[in-house]
Amino acid sequence: MNNQSKLENMELVPLNNQKKVKSQEAVNTNSQRKLKKAGLFALFVGPAFLAFTIIVLIPFFTGVYYAFTDWNGVTGNIHWVGFDNFKYLFTEDKQFQKSFWITTKYTVVAIILTNIVGFGLALLVTQMLKTRNMLRTVFFLPNLIGGLLLGFVWQFIFVKGFASVGQLTGISLFELPWLGDAKTAFWGIVIVSVWQGAGYIMLIYTAALQNVPQELIEAAKIDGANRWQILRHITMPMVAPAVTVCLFLTISWSFKIFDVNLSLTNGGPFKSTEMLALNIYTEAFVNNRYGLGEAKALIFFIVVAAITTIQVMYTKKKEVES
């Protein structure tokens, strides 16, 4: 019996060794797969992340540091001033507060009008029209023109074109000093911005409208629903994800408006249309108070990030409820 048990033990030892070898090979294979995946991930994502770090992250955190200094953007003399810049902005810098209010008012108006016009254009080009493809091109074309060029073109239209039309027709609307008065200059910026951005918003709404099941619309028509009821109770809930995206884009565009503001009015007359982005640019690069400009930019970033985050969370919640 002893010899037999010894033989059995001798047979079991190689089997155990084989199992250990196989399990070790499996571990090595899994490790190699993980390393391969990590290598491929680093190969594809690494260059993009490196570029993002150099172009975005490093300048952002550097700017946060400068927001607490009195650097003029030119010399190497940098002094830490703490929260003095922020105290100055909220207590003494009346133009910054005025620009903040103008930008907020402009943002509300531009968001509403751009989305209404964009959605209306989307409804138009999704109808069975022979010219719908041409209309899509025409409506989207202003978005391809740069903001600076667009501002100068519309500056000529407001100053020369409208004046000529007003003289010929006698219509008081065309005879207004569009860029020479604070109220009309504000609406001039709104008109140009809506004209430029509505085409892009139209494309997003068009894609959403084309995904609305026609069976639901046909069933609603059979049940006696009119166009308004179909739009309100079927179309709008179905395009809610597109509304979320369009609101996010228009909020971001409106708060960050710069090129149209610079080329159309340059903040005039008498800084009555100076938006926040232009105010920050003027403070940092014209007045050579870079630290103060960075403080404004940091406040601007926090406000825009907070508003867009709240907007996305709220509209996403509405999507689920609908």
Rank of each mutant, 00 (worst) to 15 (best):
L124P: 06
L262N: 09
T69F: 03
E283Y: 00
A67I: 01
A48F: 02
T169D: 06
Q196E: 06
F140T: 08
W101T: 10
F90W: 09
K317F: 11
V56D: 02
F83I: 14
L123N: 08
S263A: 15
D259Y: 01
P177V: 15
V74D: 03
R132V: 09
G180R: 04
S172F: 02
L144T: 06
G76Q: 11
N279T: 06
E8D: 11
L264F: 02
F52R: 04
S272C: 07
D70V: 01
F86I: 04
K20F: 10
G268A: 14
F41I: 11
F96W: 12
N85L: 11
L278H: 03
G39R: 01
A42Y: 08
R132A: 15
A240K: 07
I111L: 15
T235N: 11
V13W: 09
Y200G: 08
A297G: 03
L278C: 03
M275W: 07
V245K: 01
G268L: 13
G120A: 13
I189R: 12
V212K: 04
P142T: 14
P59E: 07
L89C: 10
L15D: 07
G76I: 07
L123Q: 08
I54R: 04
G39K: 01
E321V: 15
L247A: 04
P237I: 03
V56L: 02
I112S: 08
V303Y: 05
I111W: 02
K105L: 15
G293H: 01
G82E: 10
L148V: 10
L35M: 07
A297V: 00
E11D: 04
S272D: 06
V320T: 05
A297H: 01
P213E: 13
L264M: 04
F52I: 06
L150H: 03
K105W: 10
I58R: 05
F300M: 00
T103G: 02
K130E: 12
A219N: 07
A207H: 05
V192W: 03
I171N: 12
E175T: 05
V286T: 14
G39Q: 01
E218K: 08
V320E: 05
N287I: 13
F158H: 06
R136V: 12
Q24A: 15
A240F: 09
A110R: 11
K34W: 10
L113P: 09
R289H: 13
A185Y: 12
E274N: 10
E25M: 11
Y88G: 14
G147D: 08
A277M: 07
T107S: 05
L179A: 14
G73N: 11
K37W: 00
S263V: 01
T62F: 13
T91G: 13
E218Y: 04
V312L: 15
I54F: 11
F248M: 02
L40Y: 07
I201L: 10
T75R: 04
T250L: 03
G293D: 02
G170I: 12
G63M: 14
N211K: 07
D70F: 00
K19V: 14
L298R: 03
S164N: 08
I58M: 09
F83A: 13
T62D: 10
A305M: 15
G166A: 14
G118E: 13
A198I: 00
I302Q: 01
K22T: 09
I251K: 01
